[in-house]
Amino acid sequence: MAMSGGLNFAVLPPPVCISVRPRSVVALAAAEGTPETAERRARSLYEVLRVRETATAREIKVAYRSMAKRFHPDVTAGRGGDDFVEIRRAYEALSDPAARARYDLSIGRWRQGACGVSGRWETDQCW
């Protein structure tokens, strides 16, 4: 039942990969704005970029750049690019005002625990 938390699998490499890249799975789930079940709680996009939830657009950009400098595969020779893909997804979502607003709503809603975990995009309609 662990995988019932939304679209994760629909957007993911196969399960084999998932076991290899647990972090990116969680990140993907978060990036898609999927409501999380308790046992698969992801870091929020803000946590990925290590910024406050009230961060300005500029702060987000600066954070993205400094994170890129630490986690881009060019500077982490030998390790894969999963960290960076996760950072990039977080940045893409948070740097787009509309996407950020949607995401904020989704995590707010998740905190209130008002929504089930049917997890399809039909849930858009109740936002």
């Binding site: 995988m3 019932s4 939304g6 679209l7 994760n8 699998f9 629909a10 993911l12 490499p13 196969p14 399960p15 084999v16 990969c17 881009h72 595969p73 060019d74 894969g80 690019g81 960076f84 997890g119």
Partner: peptide, 26 residues
Amino acid sequence: DAANTLRVFAGAMMLGTDRANSPFFE
């Protein structure tokens, strides 16, 4: 990936779920 290698993963889902029906292809 960073070295610009392209990989394609694909597979079918179990109906009405987000679970893979059988192992994916890479």
